[in-house]
Design a protein around this nucleic acid. Structure first.
Lengths: 218, 218
DNA sequence: TTATATTTTTAGAGTAGTCTAAAAATTTAT
DNA sequence: ATAAATTTTTAGACTACTCTAAAAATATAA
């Protein structure tokens, strides 16, 4: 049986490797989980023992096949629960992360199958992130972070790659949500901030915000 | 903050005192939780420390007001989740206990408020057991265990007081479910077993089964 | 009421996870 | 290529919970 702490480590390793690719460092995991590098080292030994990761001391870590399956399944559960919380219970998209972090650890394959049916097999969660299939496929989204677009490109916001309350509340304040049409007007080279147009209104956002907005060019 | 283990102890103490009344013994708790009396003794000290129980060594234990509030809230969550699983996800009433035992520990008052609304404020769970209100009231049901009825009494099954798969599956096999009309035909004094009539068919059940069937006399 | 049985508590130890401090390995910079 | 900085691991300790075995308290029965 896998423990709650182990599940959180697998999830962290998956999340980092989806963002950066390649081997994952001890410090990166410590940072993601909010613990010490020493604790991570300890845990990596246990996960290695259980064949959930491939790990050589000082050389970084990657998920084994079974570890990846488990991690993707947790991600699937997280995103299905977020969809349930927003679509069925009426939560705001900025309020669901913490509860979903608890719900994702409930152990019952039957429950998730039925939840998926109840939600009518959603492909994307309320943040536009793809929900892995039961088979472990993560549908690709064909989107580009806003900060990588060229000036004068027009597109539509398909999702956000950060699930933090402050960030999502700020987007709401900017009138940015999924489906919003957006035009990139100007890139300021000094601080990499951007001028954008939304609903015929000009706005200015930082690079930190822009890089988490996923755009489909139209 | 309250831990998962602590929640399970509070729940066990509540459950025993609802069934038997009065002080709860160390052994009864050990038995309910499936652990050793030594572990229970240890934990009682911690719960006492946190003012969740009233406890004197060797003298049994009862919940404090705050302990009782917490325990009733867990019971409320358990029964709301069971209702969700059966009414919304289509689980059978015999399949939901284990999953609800996990879900009852999710920490979010907002989640339970919204779930209650989503389910349209149910008063009873799929086993006919009353769902405590947000304020901690447990509605009384005015029912009698079948084995306490007098011979030739007619009534309707309003609920069951045991949530175990084997038991519920057996009831289903007997064509017994909530709402079923039932007549007590005969009590066998030798083994306290009962003859009953359901849908014009005579059947015979043990006292162990009968005592968990809650009847409203008609 | 004194012996016996039962229940409960204490003592000591083990596991899973966490921490800080220090040692070891690796990377970076001169 | 060696020194300095950074990263990672080890060592030792702490908390929460569990266990078995033994001691202490309580209940029961002759």
């Amino acid at each position: 049986m896998i423990t709650l702490a182990e599940e959180n480590y697998l999830k962290a390793i998956l999340s980092i490797s989806l963002n950066e690719g390649g081997k994952v460092s001890t410090n990166a995991i410590a940072n993601e989980i909010g613990t010490s590098a020493a604790s991570v080292s300890d845990m990596l030994k246990k996960l290695q023992e259980k064949k959930l990761i491939k790990y050589k001391k000082y050389k970084g870590v990657e998920l084994s096949e079974s570890g990846q399956n488990k991690a993707i399944n947790i991600l699937r559960k997280h995103r299905l629960w977020e969809t349930f919380l927003v679509n069925k219970l009426g939560f705001n998209w900025s309020e669901v992360h913490d509860v979903a972090e608890q719900l994702e650890h409930i152990q019952s394959a039957e429950l998730i199958d039925r939840l998926d049916i109840f939600l009518e097999h959603p492909k994307f969660d309320p943040h536009g992130e793809p929900i892995p299939t039961k088979e472990g496929e993560i549908p690709s989204t064909n989107t580009t972070p806003l900060n990588e677009l060229q000036v004068n490109t027009k597109g539509k916001i398909m999702g956000v790659s950060l699930d933090e309350k402050d960030f999502l509340d700020y987007l709401t304040k900017l009138n940015i949500t999924i489906g919003t049409e957006i035009t990139l007007l100007e890139k300021i080279s000094f601080d990499k901030s951007l001028s954008i147009k939304i609903a015929n209104t000009k706005q200015h956002i930082s690079n930190d915000v822009a890089k988490h907005l996923l755009i489909k060019i139209s």
